[in-house]
Design a protein around this nucleic acid. Sequence first.
RNA 1: AGCGGGGUGGAGCAGUAGUAGCUCGCAAGGCUCAUAACCUUGAGGUCGCAGGUGCAAUUCCUGUCCCCGCAACCA
Length: 509
Amino acid sequence: MEKKAFYLTTTLPYVNAEPHIGFALEIVHADIAVRYHKLCGYEVFFNTGTDEHGIKIYRNALEEGKDPQKYVDGYAEKFQNLKEKLNLYPDLHFIRTTEPRHVAAAQEFWRRCSNNGDIYKKNYTTKYCVGCELEKTESELVNGACAIHPNLAVELIEEENYFFRFSNYRARLIDMYEKRPDLVIPGYRFNEIRRFVEDGLQDFSISRLKKKMPWGVAVPDDPEHVMYVWFDALISYISTLGWPKDETNFTKFWGTVVKPNGIQMAGKDQIRQQAAMWQAMLMSAGLPPSKHILIHGFINVGGQKMSKSLGNVIDPIAIVDEYGADALRYYLARHIHPFEDSDFTMEKFKESYNANLANGLGNLAARVMKLAETHLSEPVKIEFVPYPAEFTQALDRYEVNTAMDYVWRRIQALDQKINITEPFKIVKTDKEKAVALIEELVRELAFIDEMLEPLLPATAGKIINAIMGNKKPENLFPRKEEQVSSSGRVPHFAMPKNKKKKKGDLNFS
RNA sequence: AGCGGGGUGGAGCAGUAGUAGCUCGCAAGGCUCAUAACCUUGAGGUCGCAGGUGCAAUUCCUGUCCCCGCAACCA
């Protein structure tokens, strides 16, 4: 029997900035889902990439005196490096929208929409904010300027553009929403987009005049136009599969109209593009819709938006360099909610790192394996134990945080078990019983390790190696104690907390 | 205005129709295998406010107050 196929794509980040913690969140959650499905026996296709066209990139490149292609090459490399930095699934597919295979796919997609009568030319004048790269309606302007970029002059655009007949798809979208109640997850996001579509749709512009802005995919049969960046970028979800040439691969992973299979992950600012525009585009091209669109929230810092001017931007690479990929993966998976907005501060990160990775998982692995190394003559044989329902149910719903909580309860339970059964004591009186006990502890550690595999793959590998070698592992997560606590007090860094109040101890601080 | 999210012990957050849970912090004790770690116990909450439905609501409904987002470096 053929393996079931699992397809998951992130949105493609626009390459005008360094990799962002928000994208790290998206791709780590995606990576966990992919690894989990792989372990469950699916054949998986995991896609990400870079969105490289558009006026903003064109202008940035010119400002830096670079050829646009050279400019995006530099950024694409930084994003490709995330694979290693975040310890992502080894077969991660990476598509760049400037690749010939993508360009060809975008053009074919255009042709199909056009043949279907959904693309037409229209003269129009609009106000356009270069900062947002968006047309602005009157109601969106404040004092005649873009509210987000008040310092940039709103440009008046009057030109002939190609438009997509989005308005034709209102009924069909609503109909699909009715039939596919799990298209957008979570449900309250689905309500948002449903209401938006019900309120009525306006056709949107999908091309730009080449003489003004040449940095885009050429529109078929019209040398004067290039595609608007959003139109071509969305198509990357299927161009990465080899569409339109590789029909087999495409159908296998993207599915069919009857049985869609493509799962997308995106931020809450992307609902409109992903759940409405893209779905209408797929209908127009005669292609299957998405199966699920998972919408995650944003990361705030200390209750505020991240912003350069506030100086509170979190750099995922810096965290990985200091703490390791799995430490960041841990935090994103357990403490950043899969759907709602979450807060990220370095204080919280460090607190959780010490509590749950150093003191929790790392210490547990060390104490179990030290017992094993000392008292067992050979490695414990490990058998695969099926994942518990509580764990799989959480991951099946993409509730990674709940799955993490479950694993950490097992970690705590194993710590408790060691304290209760006291093998380190029993070994002095009843070696045989102690050995049996320790073997049991190792097996339970292996069980925890199994669950860690999709979550913290590097750590999981180290632990299973330690088990198979019957050897205490290297220090998996060294404690970090150098910081001053958030209250400003110097921490009691040199004293164990269960002794710090004892009288008579010398205080080394 | 509208739409969306949120208001849970000192802090940060889960969660649920039926003894309210986690991390940190605090208090007392235990253990010594472990990364000055681990375990136990305790103090601390009328789960924003007011109504309603239920045998039962923090959990569902209605109203109301407050905070945040929809305006980001687009995630």
